[in-house]
Simulated assay, not measured.
Amino acid sequence: MTYKEKLSEIRKQMKADQVEAYIIPSADPHISEYLPKYYKCIPFTSGFKGSAGTLVITHDFAGLWTDFRYFEQATEELAESGFELVKQKVQHAPEYIQWLGEKLHAGAIVAADEQLLSILLGDLLTDKLGAKGISLTNKDYLAPIWSDRPALPTESAFLLADTHVGQSVTEKLTSIRASMNEVGAKWHLVSSLDDMAWIFNIRGKDVNYNPVVLSFALISADQATLFIDLTKLDDASKEALEQAGITLAPYTSIEQALTAIPEDASI
């Protein structure tokens, strides 16, 4: 399937759902800049392989918003793709939000895959577009057309010895819980992979040139759960984490765990 054919298929789904614009950020559920192949949505959709950018698709326009580092690369890679380069004025600024607010009419619906939006970006989209009478909804228009999507990485992970990192997992959790107590937080969700590597002294090969492991953590005053593909850990690593008071759970069960938190709890 060519990039133009993919664009056409996305627009067909948008039309069926009465969606006026679709946003595809360069991100994963961990808001990483460097992504595992499974989450390389922008290269799949448009051919652009830079590490920063956002695609915005309407029924009559498709653009890549990116910064000056990628102007030349984007011009070359977007040729014949159906996408145009939109040059950002400020690096990392979501300038497409203002563009959408000016282009779309009140009552329009904008869609994005919520797994790829940070809380900050989701709130910004909701606030800025909502002020124009435009609503945001959760849609994944890539899954139905990405038949050969790479699987999530399955490389083994490993733990670093306390002697190599200077602080044990238990000590780090104690420090985190003290900070949570200071601000009155009952739960702490950790999604950034570099933070996960530090807290749990864990390393892996899930992202090229980055020694990180796809994982989440949910920490409370008396619980700490590590959400990870359990096949990545050997028995010794599992035992060491459990001895540190950590519960192990499947990577994909994080959403279920979050929905189980009481609505009035602070996180």
Results as ranks from 00 to 15, higher is better:
Thr66Ser: 11
Tyr141Cys: 10
Gly47Val: 11
Pro150Trp: 10
Ser46Asn: 10
Gln88Ile: 00
Asp148Cys: 03
Gly122His: 05
Asn138His: 15
Leu125Phe: 02
Phe61Gly: 06
Pro150Phe: 11
Ile134Lys: 09
Gln88Trp: 00
Phe83Gln: 14
Gln91Trp: 03
Leu121Ser: 02
Phe71Leu: 09
Phe83Val: 14
Thr45Val: 15
Phe158Gln: 12
Ala111Glu: 04
Glu95Trp: 00
Leu64Asn: 11
Glu72Val: 11
Tyr141Leu: 14
Trp99Ala: 01
Asp127Lys: 12
Lys128Glu: 15
Ile97Val: 14
His105Lys: 15
Ala112Tyr: 00
Gly50Glu: 08
Lys87Cys: 04
Ala111Pro: 05
Thr126Asn: 13
Tyr141Gln: 10
Glu72Gln: 13
Val56Gly: 04
Ala62Tyr: 04
Gly122Tyr: 01
Gln88Gly: 00
Gly53Trp: 06
Lys87Ala: 10
Val56Pro: 04
Glu72Met: 06
Trp146Val: 07
Gly82Asp: 10
Thr154His: 14
Val90Asp: 00
Arg149Ser: 08
Ala52Met: 11
Ile145Thr: 13
Ala52Tyr: 12
Asp123Pro: 00
Ala143Cys: 03
Lys87Asn: 04
Gln115Ala: 09
Phe158Ser: 14
Ser46Gly: 15
Ser46Leu: 11
Ala157Glu: 13
Glu102Asp: 13
Ser135Arg: 15
Gln115Ile: 01
Gly133Gln: 06
Thr137Glu: 12
Ala151Ser: 14
Thr58Cys: 12
Lys139Trp: 05
Asp60Ala: 10
Leu117Asn: 04
Gln88His: 00
Ser135Gln: 13
Leu104Tyr: 04
Tyr141Lys: 10
Thr126Phe: 04
Leu124Cys: 02
Glu77Asn: 05
Asp113Val: 02
Ala79Thr: 14
Ala151His: 12
Gly130Gln: 06
Phe68Ala: 14
Leu129Arg: 04
Ser118His: 04
Gln98Gly: 01
Thr54His: 06
Phe71Lys: 08
Pro94Gly: 03
Leu64Arg: 09
Ala79Cys: 11
Ile109Tyr: 02
Ser135Thr: 15
Ser156Cys: 09
Ile97Cys: 01
Glu72Tyr: 10
Leu121Tyr: 02
Thr54Cys: 13
Gln115His: 08
Leu100Ala: 02
Asp148Gly: 02
Thr126Met: 06
Ile97Gln: 01
Leu78Met: 07
Gly63Asp: 05
Gly122Val: 01
Ala74Pro: 08
Asp140Phe: 06
Ala93Val: 02
His92Ile: 00
Trp146Gly: 06
Trp65Thr: 00
Tyr96Asn: 00
Ile97Asn: 01
Leu124Thr: 12
Ile97Pro: 01
Arg69Trp: 07
Phe71Pro: 09
Tyr70His: 15
Glu72Pro: 00
His92Lys: 06
Pro150Tyr: 10
Lys139Pro: 02
Gly133Asp: 06
Leu117Phe: 03
Ile97Arg: 00
Glu114Ile: 01
Ile134Asn: 09
Leu124Val: 03
Ser156Gly: 06
Leu152Gly: 05
Ile57Ala: 08
Leu104Ser: 06
Ile97Gly: 01
Lys132Arg: 15
Glu72Ile: 08
Thr126Arg: 15
Leu78Arg: 08
Thr66Glu: 03
Gly50Trp: 09
Ser147Ala: 13
Asp123Cys: 07
Asp140His: 07
His59Tyr: 07
Ser51Asn: 13
Thr137His: 04
Leu121Glu: 12
Ser81Pro: 12
His105Leu: 10
